[in-house]
Design a protein around this nucleic acid. Structure first.
Lengths: 210, 210
DNA sequence: CCCTACATACCAAACGCTTGTTACGTACCT
DNA sequence: AGGTACGTAACAAGCGTTTGGTATGTAGGG
C-alpha cells in the first residue's frame, strides 16, 4: 500500500512541508504539533520523525520554509529605478492575495516563539537587518536621482519603510474588512510620496548610521 | 498557616495578575501555563483555579491585564495641540523603558493566539480601531492649525501613524541594540515631520490603480 | 465565653488527555 | 538480504481540570 520508493526522499519532505504550512496558516505556531501535521497529511507521527528527528527540527524547518517561501514568492518586475522600485518592493510585502496573507499571518505568528527564544530572537533580528538592507541601495539610487533629498539617511528610511509596511500588515491581518486592497495601496502610495519630502532636516555632521 | 482572610479576594487576584505578567514577559503567551504561574508565586494550581475557574478565564484575564496596563501606563503630558500631541502619543507607545518593552513584548506575543482564534482576532481588530480613533481628533486639530495639509485624510494618517510606530516596535524588540532610544526618537520625529508634507495629492477625478 | 456550623482559602494529589519521543514490527524495492 | 519507508503502539512528561482534605476565618446559640 504505502510506496517506499527510496528515491523521493526530498519529494516526501516537500509533502510534509506543505502540511506544516497548512497547519501554520490555520493554527499558527502555537498549534503546530506533530500530530496535527501528521493528521493534515493522513499519516502517522512515526513517519514525521522519519524525516524530522525532533520537534525542534520541525520548527526550524518551518521557519526555513517561511524564509524560503518569502524569498521565492512571485514579485512585481521593478518598474523604474529609485522610488518606484521601493514602492513595488513594499507592495510585494502587503497581504493583497491569499498567499501573501497566509505568509504574513505565519510570520506574525512566529514572533511569539521568536521572542521567547534568545537564538530565534537574534535570527529574526538579522532577518530584519537583511530586509532593510534590500531597500537601502534603491533608496540610495532614489537619492542619486533626486527623488529624495540629498541629505536623507537611507538606512533610517529603510527602517521606516519596513516599520510602516509591517505595521500595516498587522492591522490588515486583524481587520481585513477595513484594509482592502485599495486602502492598503493608497496608504502605501501616501507613505512613499512623503519619502520625497524633507523629513527632519539633519544638520550636516550630526548623523551617523547603524 | 495560610491566612484565608475572606476580604482580600481582589488583593489576591492582583497577586495572581502580577505573576501572570511576569510569566508573560519571560515566556510569552506560548509559555503561559497554570503551573508556570503557580510556580511564579510559590503556590499550587489548585489555588489558581480558585480564582480563575479555567485556563481560558486566565488567558482572558491576561488580555484584560494587557489592556488595563496599557491604558493605565504613565504618559507624557501633551505639550501643545496638534502634531506635538500626536508625537507625544506615539512616543508613549515606543519601547523606551523596560516597562514599555515588556508591555510591547507581551502585545506582540499575544498576536499568535489572537490570530488563531476568531473572537480574539475581532477583539484585537477593535482595539486597533480604538487606538486609531485616539489619534484622529488630534490630527484634525493639526489640520485645523495648518500643521498638515487641509485635504489630508486624517483617518488614513491615523492608520499610518499606528502602522509606523508598531512596525518600529517590532523591529526594536528583535534588535534593541540597533534601535536605542535616540534612534527610535529620531525615526519618529522624521515620520512626524513628513506628516506635514503633502503626501499623495488626491486630485478629484483622477484614479490610480494596481 | 465557648461551642458548633459554615464558608473561604488553599494544598496535595490524582484524574484523563495531549504532547514529543522511542521502540518495534512490517511491507516494499533493489 | 538488507536498507528504506512507513504504521502501530507505547512511553514519560506536561497539560488543564477535579477531588478531598485541612486549615483559618466569621456567625450564631447557649
Amino acid at each position: 500500500m504505502a510506496p517506499p520508493a527510496p528515491g523521493d526522499h526530498e519529494a516526501r519532505r516537500k509533502d510534509v512541508s506543505e502540511a506544516v504550512w497548512r497547519v501554520l496558516a490555520a493554527k499558527g505556531f502555537g498549534g503546530l504539533t506533530l500530530r496535527a501535521v501528521a493528521a493534515e497529511m493522513g499519516a502517522s507521527t512515526g513517519m514525521l520523525t522519519h524525516y524530522f528527528p525532533s520537534k525542534r527540527a520541525l520548527v526550524t524547518h518551518a521557519l526555513d520554509l517561511l524564509e524560503q517561501d518569502t524569498a521565492g514568492r512571485p514579485r512585481r518586475t521593478p518598474p523604474a529605478d529609485g522610488l518606484p522600485t521601493v514602492r513595488a518592493m513594499l507592495l510585494d510585502i502587503l497581504p493583497l492575495t491569499p498567499a501573501d496573507t497566509a505568509r504574513n499571518r505565519i510570520w506574525v505568528s512566529s514572533w511569539d516563539l521568536s521572542l521567547a527564544d534568545e537564538t530565534l530572537t537574534a535570527q529574526q533580528g538579522d532577518r530584519y537587518a537583511r530586509l532593510r538592507d534590500t531597500f537601502r541601495p534603491h533608496l540610495e539610487t532614489a537619492r542619486g536621482l533626486g527623488e529624495i533629498p540629498s541629505n536623507a539617511d537611507t538606512g533610517q528610511l529603510a527602517s521606516a519603510a519596513v516599520a510602516f509596511v509591517h505595521g500595516l500588515v498587522v492591522q490588515a491581518l486583524f481587520d481585513p474588512g477595513r484594509f482592502p486592497e485599495d486602502v492598503q495601496i493608497a496608504m502605501l502610495d501616501d507613505f512613499v510620496a512623503r519619502l520625497a519630502g524633507p523629513g527632519t532636516d539633519t544638520a550636516p555632521g550630526s548623523s551617523r548610521d547603524t
